[in-house]
C-alpha cells in the first residue's frame, strides 16, 4: 500500500508557537488581573501581589460623593447618547440598506469620519465651535459629541445588518396586509436585533469609557466618571483607583459576553483612541 503523502503532516501548533502565544496572552490579561486584585490589598498603596484581603477600599470608594455623582452623570450620558445613536443610526441604516443611488460607500465613510480623526483633533474643533456659541461645559454639548462618536461605531454594525435582510420577508408581511410601519416594527427591526444590540453596546461603552472629549469640552458640571478617575490618578495612587478601575473591567467583561452572543467578536475593530 502506497503512503499517502511523502511529507510529514504540517505541525501548525508547534510548541514554540503556543509558548509565544501564552506570553502574549499573559501580556494582554495580566494588567487587568493586577487592577482587580490590587483593589483588595490591605496596604495603603498599590502593590502586586496584593497583601492580605480587605474590602476597606471598596467602602472608601463608594463613600465618595464626588465619584458617585460622576458615576450617575456618566451613566446618564451613556444611556442618552446610546438612545440618540440608535434612533439616528437605525433610520440612516434603513435608508442606506436599500440605497438605490450611487455613493453609498461615500455616505458610510462620511458617518465613520469622526472616528478616523484623532479624538484630540475633533475635541479641539468642538472646543472652538462650542466656545463660539457659549455652550462649553454643558451636558448637551457633551451628549452631542458622544452621539457623533457613538454613531460612527454604530453605523459600522448597523449598515451591514440592514443590507443582510432579505426583502422577501418584509414583502411577505405587506402582502399579508401589514402596513409599512407594521412591517418595519414586526419584521425588519426584529431581524436587525443582533445588530441593534451590538450597536447599542458599542455606543454605550464608547461613551462610558471616553475621556479626551470631556477634558476639552467639559466643565465643572460635567465631570464624568473616567475624567474624575483621570484627575484623581494624576495626583494620588492608592488602591481606591483600583476599585474604580475594576468597575470598568467588569463592564468590559459584560460587553464581551454580550457581543459574543449577538454579532460575534470579529466585528471589533476600532479607530483612534
Amino acid at each position: 500500500m502506497a503512503k499517502r503523502g511523502a511529507t510529514a503532516p504540517p505541525r501548525e501548533r508547534s510548541f514554540a508557537l503556543l509558548i509565544v502565544c501564552g506570553l502574549v496572552y499573559l501580556f494582554l490579561i495580566a494588567p487587568m488581573i493586577v487592577v482587580v486584585s490590587t483593589s483588595f490589598t490591605k496596604t495603603a498603596y498599590v502593590v502586586f501581589p496584593p497583601e492580605g484581603f480587605t474590602l476597606h477600599w471598596f467602602a472608601v470608594a463608594f463613600s465618595s460623593q464626588a465619584f458617585l455623582k460622576s458615576m450617575v452623570l456618566s451613566l446618564e450620558l451613556a444611556v442618552l447618547s446610546t438612545l440618540c445613536t440608535l434612533v439616528l443610526g437605525i433610520a440612516s441604516a434603513l435608508a442606506l440598506g436599500r440605497w438605490q443611488f450611487g455613493g453609498r460607500d461615500f455616505l458610510v465613510s462620511f458617518f465613520l469620519s469622526p472616528i478616523l480623526v484623532p479624538t484630540v483633533v475633533y475635541a479641539i474643533a468642538l472646543l472652538q465651535f462650542f466656545a463660539a456659541f457659549r455652550t462649553l461645559g454643558t451636558f448637551t454639548s457633551l451628549l452631542i459629541a458622544h452621539t457623533v462618536l457613538g454613531l460612527a461605531y454604530a453605523m459600522r454594525i448597523l449598515v451591514p445588518a440592514t443590507v443582510g435582510i432579505n426583502t422577501v420577508m418584509e414583502e411577505a408581511a405587506m402582502v399579508l396586509g401589514a402596513t409599512r410601519l407594521q412591517a418595519l416594527w414586526r419584521v425588519v427591526l426584529p431581524l436587525m436585533r443582533g445588530g441593534i444590540a451590538a450597536a447599542s453596546i458599542f455606543a454605550f461603552v464608547v461613551s462610558l469609557d471616553e475621556v479626551v472629549m470631556v477634558i476639552f469640552i467639559g466643565g465643572a458640571q460635567t465631570i464624568t466618571f473616567p475624567l474624575r478617575l483621570y484627575s484623581y490618578m494624576a495626583e494620588r495612587f492608592d488602591p481606591v483607583v483600583s476599585v474604580y478601575s475594576s468597575l470598568f473591567v467588569v463592564v468590559a467583561v459584560a460587553v464581551v459576553f454580550a457581543l459574543a452572543r449577538t454579532v460575534g467578536l470579529e466585528t471589533v475593530t476600532g479607530g483612534p483612541e
Partner: peptide
C-alpha cells in the same frame, strides 16, 4: 481566545494606562 484579545479593548484607556503604571513602577512587579 478571541474574547481574551478583545476584552482589554473595552476597558477605558484611563484604566489600561493605570494598570501599566502599577505594573511598571520602580517598586512594581
Amino acid at each position: 481566545l478571541l474574547a481574551l484579545v478583545v476584552f482589554p479593548f473595552f476597558v477605558s484607556i484611563v484604566v489600561r494606562t493605570y494598570a501599566w503604571m502599577a505594573l511598571l513602577d520602580e517598586n512594581g512587579p
